[in-house]
Write a protein that binds this DNA or RNA. Structure first.
Length: 483
DNA sequence: ATGTTC
């Protein structure tokens, strides 16, 4: 059991567990949290899991955990780990089962007050046009060849098919395509699961939400990002569906043998990994990129259907009615990046699991207008609560390998939430607050109740005070579509 | 998160 006494306070928002805590640790753990969130993080296995991650071979700097952290498979959700290249490792469990789970925000000039009476109709149109639910099938089934092509090209495939604009791609992490995706490293089973799932939302905490931009904190940045106070925006939160899930399952199994072959000592079987330079490590990296590109194409296809829904309700998409992309960012991904770590320029494989990239101003992988302000960080709150749009900072390179938080973070397990919260009653409460709810499953709705999550405002305040990201805008939900 | 246990 890890207690507060094991955490050395670096400042009001950063705590450290040093390598002397456990002999096998190769790097320290940094916890980004205020006192209350630190106590929250110590209640489940989050910090224990972060300490386990810090025992892996070939790490750089420290393991970071975000204020929205909660326990996950092997590595906590809300964790960041950097492995040295070429002598470090890559771990499927440190990316997560939902490879490139992520979020996309599009914003409009449609005034909420004048659009309010159309929201029930809009929610219904979005629910109809964006298939959801476990096993949900999309409207664009792909041949085996087309799936491979989509996996190599990501959102570029969607551009070719007419589901995207050039600006959408510009305003997507990695421009919507990770180079080096390898469909040959993806099992037939994963492909069979994925072929029918493009353009689907899925279930669990995945959702599509209509929000009103409630408050602006950085007017200059908001102008550049196209965020207008009092106007409608949408969030699309989903990932690589059964495709990415199967890839993770396959490689977690494969790597059991790799761990033995390469003589890697593990603190937890769930942290199976392989040397990043090994054939096993490279195969996973190629497959993970294929899943990441699937997710980029998936959110792009959903954005297309969302735009169609807006058009059905508000008429032709011209002028103020256009839904312009703000950004699209991954929550679960491993990336080869350069970072200055303890004064040394290093190439590392940054594993972000329930954490986003949050690069500061000047980063070349951004469109010109964002190079001035830094990379947008999209932080969806729990259902029925606020969401945030932030910007990455220059300082976060040394703090978190250029990473930030990804959401509110669970405090109640799915099973407990399902037992304690009635979906029907929750729907009534949300509707009473003026949120139009379209949910395929009431027990599913209960799992995502606001009470099951931390306070997203507190999480955002922490990353802001810690210097990882800064506030641009707060969003309030007015319609939610869920599986 | 997930054809919620091949």
């Amino acid at each position: 059991m890890i207690t507060k006494q094991d955490c050395r306070k670096i400042n009001n928002y950063i705590w450290e567990i040093s390598t002397s805590f456990k002999p096998q640790m190769t790097v320290p753990v940094w916890i980004f949290a205020d006192e209350e969130l630190l106590e929250e993080a110590l209640k489940d296995l989050s910090v224990t899991q972060a300490v386990n991650v810090a025992c892996l071979p070939g790490l750089a700097g420290h393991v970071a955990i975000m204020p929205d952290v909660h326990q996950g498979y092997g590595m906590p959700i809300g964790g960041v780990m950097a492995a040295r290249v070429p002598d470090g490792i890559i771990s499927p469990g440190a990316v997560g089962y939902d490879i490139n789970c992520g979020v996309r925000v599009l914003a409009s000039g449609i005034d909420y007050k004048s659009a309010k009476r159309h929201l029930p109709e809009l929610a219904t149109a979005l629910y109809r046009n964006c298939p959801s639910g476990v096993g949900g099938k999309g409207s664009v089934p792909l041949s085996a060849e087309e799936l491979d092509k989509m996996c190599r090209q990501g959102a570029k495939w969607a551009l070719e098919k007419g589901y995207a604009t050039e600006e959408d791609l510009q305003r997507t992490e990695e421009f919507g395509c990770l180079e080096g995706a390898d469909p040959n490293s993806v099992s037939k089973r994963a492909k069979d699961r994925g072929r029918g799932q493009l353009g689907t939302l899925g279930a669990g905490n995945h959702f599509l939400e209509v929000d009103v931009i409630e408050e602006i904190f950085d007017q200059d940045a908001a102008d550049i990002m196209g965020l207008y106070e009092g106007c409608l925006a949408i969030q699309i939160h989903c990932g690589s569906r059964g495709f990415g899930h199967q890839i993770c399952t396959d490689y977690v199994q494969d790597f059991q043998l790799a761990v033995i072959n390469y003589g890697i000592q593990l603190p937890d079987r769930e942290l199976v990994c392989a040397p990043i330079s090994s054939k096993e490590g490279q195969a996973y990296l190629g497959a993970m990129k294929a899943a990441a590109n699937f997710a980029f194409a998936n959110r792009q296809t959903l954005a297309y259907h969302a735009r169609q829904s807006f058009e059905e309700v508000f008429g032709s998409q011209t002028g103020n009615h256009a839904l312009r992309q703000v950004y699209d960012i991954a929550h679960n991904m491993a990336k080869i990046e350069q970072h200055n770590i303890n004064g040394e320029e290093m190439t590392v494989c940054v594993h972000r699991k329930g954490a986003t990239r949050a690069f500061g101003p000047g980063f070349e992988g951004l469109p010109p207008e964002y190079q001035e302000i830094g990379q947008p960080v999209l932080v969806p709150g729990s259902m029925g609560t606020e969401s945030w749009i932030l910007l990455g900072t220059e300082a976060n390179d040394a703090l978190s390998f250029g990473s930030s938080c990804h959401g509110a973070g669970r405090v109640m397990s799915r099973s407990k939430a399902k037992k304690e919260i009635r979906g029907e009653r929750l729907r009534g409460e949300l509707e009473k607050e003026g949120i139009n709810v379209r949910a395929g499953s009431l027990p599913g709705l209960a799992e995502e109740a606001p009470q099951a999550y931390k306070d997203v405002n507190r999480v955002v305040e922490t990353v802001s005070q810690a210097g990882i990201a800064h506030k641009v805008a707060r969003l309030r939900p007015v319609a939610v579509v869920k599986g």
